[in-house]
Simulated scan of single mutants.
Amino acid sequence: MIDTRTAPYAALVLRVALGILFLAHAGLKIFVFTPAGTAQFFGSLGLPPALAYLTILIEVAGGVALILGFYARIAAIVLIPILLGAIFTVHGPAGFFFTNPKGGWEFLALWIVGLLAQALVGDGALALKSTPASTSGRLAARSA
C-alpha cells in the first residue's frame, strides 16, 4: 500500500538526490576532466567529440530540472540514455562491480532504476512545474 501522505516527499527526496548526482557528474566533466578533455575521451571511444558537450549540457539541465521539479518525470526519462551510453561504451566492458578498473555498471543500472521510479511516482512535493496531465496520465497506473 502507498502512503499518500508521505509519497510526495519520497518523490522529492529521490528527485533531489538524482539531480545532485547528475550535477556532480557534470561537474566532474567540467571542472576535473574539462569539456575539451571530455570531448577527447569521447573521441577515443569512437564517439563524436561534440557528443561530450551535449552530454554535459543534458546532465546539467536534467540535474537542475530534477532538483527544482521542473517537468521532473520527463527529465528523468531524458537522462536514461546518458547512463545507457556510459554503460555500453565505458563501464559495461569493465564488468558489474564499480570497484573494477574503469568502474563497473551496477551503480549506473541502479541510477537508471531510480530514474524510472521517479518517472513512475511523479514529480513529488515542492515541484516547480509538474509534468502536464496529458503526459503524466500515460505514466500513471490505471485502476480496474
Rank of each mutant, 00 (worst) to 15 (best):
I87A: 00
L57K: 05
G85Q: 13
R5C: 10
Y9Q: 05
A65L: 08
L18H: 03
K102Q: 15
V90W: 02
R5A: 12
P48V: 04
L45T: 09
G104P: 08
A24C: 10
Q40W: 00
R15T: 03
G62W: 08
R142A: 15
L54H: 06
V32E: 03
S44G: 13
L83D: 05
T34I: 11
A94R: 06
A127C: 08
G114C: 05
G62F: 00
I77C: 01
D123R: 07
F70N: 10
R15A: 03
A140L: 02
G92F: 05
F31V: 09
P81S: 14
L84T: 03
L84Y: 03
F42C: 07
T99S: 15
I80Q: 06
A11R: 08
A39W: 01
A39F: 04
A140S: 07
I20A: 08
I58E: 11
G43H: 11
R142N: 14
I20H: 07
W105V: 03
P132G: 10
G124C: 10
S136Q: 11
W105T: 09
P48W: 04
V32Q: 04
F97I: 12
I82N: 09
A10K: 02
F107P: 05
H91Q: 07
G63T: 11
I74W: 11
V13T: 04
P93R: 00
I74G: 10
E59T: 02
A7W: 10
L57V: 14
R73L: 02
V32H: 02
D3E: 12
L57F: 15
L116R: 00
R138P: 01
L110N: 14
T131L: 00
N100P: 07
F97C: 13
Y71G: 08
P48M: 00
A10F: 10
L21W: 04
G104I: 03
A133R: 00
R73H: 05
Y71K: 08
T34Y: 11
T89P: 06
F97P: 14
L14Q: 04
L110C: 12
I56G: 01
T135C: 14
V113E: 13
R138S: 12
Y71D: 01
A133M: 02
P81R: 14
A10S: 13
Q40I: 08
G27Q: 05
I74M: 04
G63N: 02
Q40H: 08
G46H: 10
G19W: 05
L54K: 03
E59R: 09
G63Y: 04
G85W: 11
G92D: 00
A144C: 14
G92I: 06
S44T: 14
Q40N: 00
A119P: 12
E106F: 06
G69W: 02
H91W: 08
W105L: 07
F33Q: 14
L12A: 07
A141K: 12
L66Y: 07
A10H: 01
S136H: 12
G19F: 01
L21I: 10
K129C: 11
V13I: 04
S44M: 15
A10I: 12
R73A: 01
P48L: 04
T38G: 03
A125M: 08
F98A: 11
L79R: 03
D3V: 04
P101A: 07
F107N: 07
R5L: 11
